[in-house]
Simulated assay, not measured.
Amino acid sequence: MERKPVEIHVYGAEIICPSCVNMPSSKETYEWLEAAVGRKYPDQPFIIKYIDIYNPPEDEAARSFAERVIEEDMFYPVVLLEGNVVGEGNPRLKTIYTELEKYGYKAV
Rank of each mutant, 00 (worst) to 15 (best):
M1I: 15
E2P: 09
K4N: 13
K4M: 09
P5A: 11
V6P: 02
I8V: 15
I8D: 02
H9K: 14
H9M: 12
H9E: 10
Y11L: 07
Y11Q: 08
G12M: 08
E14S: 05
I15E: 13
I15N: 14
C17P: 01
C17V: 01
C17D: 03
P18L: 11
S19E: 15
C20M: 09
V21T: 03
N22W: 04
P24T: 02
P24M: 05
S25P: 01
S25F: 06
E28G: 02
E31M: 08
E31F: 00
E31T: 02
L33Q: 01
L33E: 04
L33W: 01
E34V: 00
E34F: 05
E34I: 01
A35L: 09
A36W: 04
V37F: 02
R39W: 04
D43M: 10
Q44N: 11
P45N: 08
F46K: 03
I48P: 06
K49I: 04
Y50H: 12
I51D: 03
I51R: 07
I53D: 04
Y54S: 07
N55Q: 15
P56H: 13
P57M: 04
P57T: 01
P57Y: 00
P57V: 02
P57D: 01
A61S: 06
A62S: 14
S64K: 12
F65P: 05
E67P: 01
V69R: 01
I70L: 14
E71N: 15
M74W: 14
M74R: 15
M74T: 14
M74E: 15
F75Q: 13
F75Y: 11
F75V: 09
F75H: 09
Y76S: 02
Y76L: 11
P77N: 05
V78D: 03
V78N: 07
V79E: 12
L81M: 12
E82Y: 03
E82R: 03
G83I: 05
G83Q: 07
G83R: 08
N84G: 10
N84W: 10
G89N: 13
P91G: 05
R92H: 07
R92D: 10
R92V: 09
L93H: 10
L93E: 11
T95W: 11
I96D: 05
I96N: 08
E99W: 04
L100G: 01
E101V: 08
E101S: 09
K102I: 10
K102H: 14
Y103E: 01
Y103R: 06
Y103A: 00
Y103P: 00
K106C: 11
K106A: 14
A107D: 13
